[in-house]
C-alpha cells in the first residue's frame, strides 16, 4: 500500500471520529486545519509538482474568502442558497483572478515568476483595503453566520470535511493524471519537455488556475467558519503560510502539506495560548523541524519506510 493512501485512510478515520471527542473550541481549530490542509495541498500542486514557487498565493485564498463572504452577505439569495453557492463562487472568483495573474506570471520562471505573483498580490491587497463599499476596507467583513444547524461547529465541521475531502480527491487524481505527470516532467526539465511536444506555458497556466481555484475554496471554507474576512488575509506575509506548511510537511508527498498544515495550526494554537512571544517560539520550532527534516515530516516517514 502506498504512503499517500495509508495517510489518507488514517486521516479520514481520525477526521470522522474527531467531533465526538472535541470541545467546540477544538472543533473550530479542526475546521481551520481542514481548510488550511486544502490550501497547502493546492499550493503544493504548483511547488511540489510544477516547480513553481508562488509568493502570492494568499491572494487566491483571500479572493475566495471575500467571494464566499460576499455571496452570503450581499447576493440577496435565501441564506441556505447563498451558503450553498458560496464555495462555488469562491472557486470561480479565485480561478478567474488566477487566470489573469497566471497569464502574466508564467511568462517568467524562478524568482521572477515569484516576484510577479508577489506584485499581483499587493495589487489585490490594496483593492481589498480600498474598495470599502465592497470589502468593508480595513474593517473587513464580519459577523458572517452559516444558516440553521450549520452555525453549530460540529455540523459545520462535517460540511467542511464534505467539501474539502472531495476537493483533495480531485487534486489527487490531477497529480496522478497525464497532466500531473507532465507537470512533474516540466519541473524536472522545462527545456526537454518542450521537445516531447508540450507547450510549457499553457500547462503552467492551467496548473496555476486549478491551484488558485482550490486555494479560493479553502479561503471560503475558513471564512464562513471564522465568520469574518480581513484584507490582511491577502497581505504578503500571509503568503508565507502555505509555503511553510508545504515545506514542513514535505513537498514531494501529496498529503505532506496537509500534515504540515495540521502541525502548523495546532502548534500556533497551543503556543499562542501560553506566551505572547509565540511567533518567536514558532520560528524556533519550524527552524528546528526544517533543519532536522529537510524532506519534511513525510520525508522522515518515507526514509523509515523505504526498503
Amino acid at each position: 500500500m502506498n504512503r499517500s493512501r495509508t495517510l489518507a485512510v488514517l486521516a479520514a478515520l481520525v477526521a470522522a471520529a474527531l467531533p465526538a471527542a472535541l470541545s467546540d473550541f477544538w472543533i473550530f481549530i479542526a475546521i481551520e486545519v481542514i481548510a488550511f490542509a486544502l490550501y497547502a495541498v493546492s499550493f503544493n500542486v504548483l511547488l511540489g509538482y510544477g516547480g513553481m514557487l508562488s509568493f502570492g498565493h494568499a491572494a487566491f485564498f483571500g479572493v475566495g474568502a471575500y467571494a464566499g463572504a460576499l455571496m452570503v452577505r450581499k447576493s440577496g439569495f435565501a441564506p441556505e442558497a447563498a451558503f450553498a453557492l458560496a464555495p462555488l463562487a469562491a472557486m470561480a472568483a479565485a480561478a478567474a483572478v488566477a487566470a489573469v495573474v497566471g497569464f502574466f506570471s508564467v511568462r517568467r520562471s524562478g524568482i521572477y515568476f515569484g516576484m510577479l505573483t508577489f506584485a499581483f498580490q499587493m495589487l489585490l491587497y490594496t483593492i481589498a483595503l480600498k474598495a470599502t463599499g465592497l470589502t468593508g476596507g480595513d474593517d473587513g467583513i464580519t459577523g458572517l453566520k452559516p444558516p440553521g444547524a450549520l452555525a453549530r461547529p460540529a455540523v459545520y465541521y462535517v460540511f467542511a470535511l464534505a467539501t474539502v475531502g472531495p476537493a483533495l480527491y480531485v487534486l489527487y487524481r490531477l497529480v496522478n493524471s497525464p497532466f500531473g505527470i507532465t507537470l512533474r516532467a516540466l519541473k524536472a526539465n522545462p527545456r526537454r519537455v518542450q521537445y516531447v511536444g508540450v507547450d510549457v506555458r499553457s500547462h503552467q497556466l492551467a496548473a496555476f488556475v486549478v491551484s488558485g481555484a482550490f486555494a479560493g475554496l479553502a479561503g471560503a471554507v475558513f471564512a464562513l467558519s471564522s465568520g469574518n474576512v480581513f484584507p490582511a488575509w491577502l497581505n504578503w506575509t500571509a503568503s508565507a503560510t502555505p509555503i511553510v506548511m508545504a515545506v514542513l510537511g514535505g513537498v514531494s508527498s501529496f498529503l505532506g502539506p496537509a500534515l504540515g498544515a495540521a502541525v502548523y495550526v495546532v502548534l500556533e494554537v497551543v503556543i499562542s495560548g501560553r506566551t505572547e512571544y509565540w511567533p518567536l517560539v514558532m520560528g524556533v520550532i519550524i527552524l528546528a523541524l526544517v533543519l532536522l527534516m529537510p524532506a519534511g515530516l513525510t520525508g522522515l516517514w518515507r526514509r523509515r519506510g523505504a526498503p
Binding site: 487524481r173 496522478n176 493524471s177 497525464p178 505527470i181
Partner: peptide, 15 residues
C-alpha cells in the same frame, strides 16, 4: 502522452 495529445487529461491514471 504528449504525442497522443493526452497531456491535458486531468482525471485518468497516467500510470
Amino acid at each position: 502522452l504528449a504525442h497522443a495529445r493526452q497531456s491535458w487529461r486531468m482525471w485518468a491514471r497516467a500510470a
